[in-house]
Amino acid sequence: MSPNHAADADASGDARYWALQGLKGLFSVPALILMTAHVGFAGLARGAGIDWMEATFMVATIWALPANIVLIGAVTAGTSLAGTALAVALSSLRLMPMVVALMPELRGARTRTLLFLSHFVAVTGWVFAMRTLHEVPRRHRTVYFGAFGGSLCLINAVIVAIAFNLLSQLPALATGALAFLTPVYFLCSLYGSAREPSGRIGLFTGMAALPVANWLDPSSDILVAGLAGGIIAYVAGRIVETRVGA
């Protein structure tokens, strides 16, 4: 606490310090797993007949691995522009409550800055921010998060560009194994970052609700399962908390 307090006097040097701390996050296990998962995405894109520049552009502009996987699936199926946009919108809707949950940590920043930084909210950046932002002085939080999120997005775009061109054709098993990284990584990462019982319960209710929602309507299964699972988890979490509290 006291070293930070002393460093507060030199504002610009301090900002550089926190930007560097954000960059250090690139060497964390979650960031490295995400980079490996993007090698798998390069293999998936190649298999779908998308060129390397388009795949790189997707990673940089969309920056949400599930949305990119949905997009590749729609491109392979020859889905129309409107149909693809709807499918991607349904898979990306989860980002809105994630951003809402993150905003109290970044309160005080300008709206323009927040709109720009929100592009880097995806599972890895969100978990990283929810875990570590409270240790960062409030006025350096945007620099810290921007340094991590921006560089993570850029590096993964570069990784897709390189992997696409180096791995001329990945064997199907390797692409499958790399694709499987994403669900396992998301599950462990979100469980570890859950702050209250409802977060942990939500992981299981959301997963359990998906087969039912998929059977009802495959095109909106994620939305239906996520909302139903989330509401059940919130109510269950409140009950658990009041029991423990009482």
Binding site: P97, G199, L203, A225, A233, Y234
Partner: peptide, 8 residues
């Protein structure tokens, strides 16, 4: 947070 987690 509960909705976001469940959607993921």
């Amino acid at each position: 947070r509960a909705i976001a987690t469940s959607l993921v």
